[in-house]
């Protein structure tokens, strides 16, 4: 098998640079496998994150050749167009970087405390667990969101600074769809997200890249409709 070059974005407290690693290509290996191989056989200082390595937890989002993916579920295939058998691996866009490919999730948690739509509600707002099977099935499709951050990375407008993480709209839509919350709570959630809805340009990249097949853009459309109908009534 011939060699490939994997170009990895490196960043530490002092500097950022692109490092090239040359490895012998093997088919049918995931990006996580390649990163582990680099770390354990070539350069133990390379920092990346992975937890379940089964596509369940959402810890290992990275950009492979410019596309935001989960490292553990994505097989590294050589780009056909690349003349030098080269792949690039970068951290997700739109997040503070702790080191190399690792996102600073502590800062994200702090920011979620400020901007989450569910936050102005009292805890335990779902005061009963009784609801119909159909209602719960709808919620399940939205609750599949792992908050991996791939939607954030693919969003072309979040870097402008006015928008918030697309996965927050998925959570907001899930909450207002829940039959167990009352209209006052619903209105509060809508008020919280309403200022951000208009920034979405409906490009649909978030939904196309989502590993769970959820579309934040579609959630935003539904939230806008809900805002409109609240304003009418």
């Amino acid at each position: 098998m011939s060699d490939i070059i994997i170009k990895v974005s490196r960043r530490n407290s002092e500097t950022s640079f692109i490092q090239e690693y040359r490895l012998t290509y093997q088919p049918a290996k995931t990006v996580f496998w390649w990163l582990t191989k680099i770390k354990e056989e070539i350069d133990s200082s390379l920092a990346f994150e992975c937890s379940c390595r089964s596509g369940l937890c959402g810890a290992c989002g990275i950009k492979l050749n410019g596309h935001s993916v989960l490292a553990c579920t994505t097989t590294l295939k050589l780009p056909q167009s690349s003349p030098n058998r080269t792949c690039t691996i970068e951290p997700l866009n739109g997040f503070p970087i702790l080191r190399d490919l690792i996102i600073d999730w502590r800062s994200i948690t702090d920011s979620l405390k400020i901007k989450s739509p569910w936050l102005s509600q009292q805890p335990n707002m779902l005061n009963t667990s009784i609801q119909s099977k159909e209602e719960s099935a709808h919620i399940h499709s939205l609750a599949a969101c792992m908050m991996c951050g791939i939607c954030v990375s693919e969003c072309p407008i979040i870097s402008q600074g006015h928008f918030i993480e697309p996965f927050i709209f998925v959570k907001a839509y899930r909450l207002i769809s829940d039959s167990r919350i009352n209209n006052q709570q619903r209105q509060q959630i809508l008020q919280n997200v309403q200022p951000y809805l208009a920034y979405c340009i409906q490009c649909g990249r978030c939904g196309n890249a989502c590993p769970k097949g959820i579309s934040p853009a579609a959630a935003i459309t539904c939230l806008q409709q809900a805002v409109n109908s609240f304003q009418q009534s």
């Binding site: 994150e49 937890s51 089964s54 369940l56 937890c57 959402g58 810890a59 999730w105 502590r106 792992m146």
Partner: peptide, 12 residues
């Protein structure tokens, strides 16, 4: 050691 979302409870 990781975000609470990536803990074992998040991978069950």
């Amino acid at each position: 050691k990781t975000s609470p979302l990536r803990s074992t409870t998040g991978c069950t």
